Amino acid sequence: MKSKKSIIEDAVNTLQLEAQSILGLIDHINDDFIRIIDLILQCRGRVIVTGIGKSAIIAQKIVATFNSTGTPSIFMHAADAVHGDLGMIQKDDIVICISKSGNTPEIKVLAPLLKQSGNLMIGMVGQLNSELAVQADLILNTTVAKEACPHNLAPTTSTTAQLAMGDAIAICLLNARNFNETDFGRYHPGGALGKRLYLKAGDIALKNQKPSIPPDASVKDVIIEISQNRLGAVVVIEADVILGIITDGDIRRMLEKHTNLADITASDLMNARPKTIEKEFLAINALEMIKENNITQLLVTDGGAYFGMIHLHDLLQEGII
């Protein structure tokens, strides 16, 4: 078993080498890189990203990032390409072939075939005298000094460099297209991330009951209404106008101060300045209001009229928090 000090040294050395590999890419952001961005922006087809081994895994991640940020992309495994998958490449597609050495058997077979297809071929490669570099129309140089692996064998710094170069391309394309949060939400409708980008306050309020009570309601009626609707609060309304809100906390504080409840009504208990949010605002905005005001319930309105209520637990259940 290695000592704690030795383990820490190994981890720090790995991170330093990988950080250096990324910083080394800065010198390779050149005219070829700019040309690649321009050509992808003009591309009528898709970006096909291919590779073998660990580079294939990086290719899959780059494809996922491209697709989620507005660049249609498909992964093609280099080994499967020569067994029929070349058929997925259409005439307007651009191909990015990823390989550290550029000389693996699969790449040596694939590169000339891609060249013959007439599609623009971009080589993301770590050896500029390799078969891939020679065949490619444009080069993304991802050369690294050494792998973090002590034997300089396991792909580590090289795959980190490939991944970072893919991210650099994706972000340049994203910014060039003015790809915004609304676009991002359209491509990420599922999960907590998607909900943060598209779920509206009104969508959540519709799932809840709409507790309300008149200003002259008794304490008993207030308690019953709060208990039945399980939102921990009730809205005081008269002639469709919101007068205030009563929470279960307001009830507890009232009981601490008063023993005679006969003459107390909803108007005596309510907070006459409840926090509200219009139904078209995002649920994440509702969460921000709840946090800023240190409250649990938030009224949702439609043009100022009472539309519903959101509880902090609703946001937790939706995965917004």
Rank of each mutant, 00 (worst) to 15 (best):
M1D: 04
I7D: 09
D10H: 13
D10S: 14
N13R: 15
S21D: 05
I22K: 05
D27P: 05
D31K: 14
R35G: 04
D38Q: 14
I40L: 10
L41R: 11
C43P: 01
G45H: 04
V47Y: 02
V47K: 01
V63W: 05
G70D: 14
M76W: 00
M76F: 03
A78N: 06
A79T: 15
A79C: 14
G87M: 08
Q90R: 14
Q90G: 10
D92H: 10
D92R: 02
D92W: 08
D93A: 01
I98F: 06
S101N: 06
K115L: 10
I122L: 11
A133H: 06
A145V: 15
A145G: 00
A145Y: 11
A145I: 15
K146N: 15
P150N: 11
T156N: 02
T156G: 10
Q162T: 11
M165K: 02
G166V: 07
G166F: 06
A170H: 07
L173I: 08
A176T: 03
R186V: 11
R186P: 00
G190C: 12
A192L: 05
K195I: 07
R196T: 07
A205M: 11
P211C: 12
S212R: 07
I213Y: 03
D216F: 13
A217W: 04
S218W: 06
V219H: 01
V222P: 00
V222K: 00
I226N: 02
G232E: 01
G232I: 00
G232Q: 01
V234M: 04
E238F: 02
A239L: 09
V241G: 00
G244I: 01
I245E: 00
I246R: 02
D250N: 10
I251S: 00
R253G: 05
L255A: 03
N260S: 14
D263A: 11
A266P: 06
M270R: 00
M270W: 00
K279R: 13
E288H: 05
M289G: 01
K291N: 15
K291W: 10
N293C: 08
I295G: 04
Q297H: 02
L299V: 03
T301G: 10
T301Q: 13
F307G: 01
I310N: 07
I310G: 04
L312N: 02
I320D: 15
I321P: 02
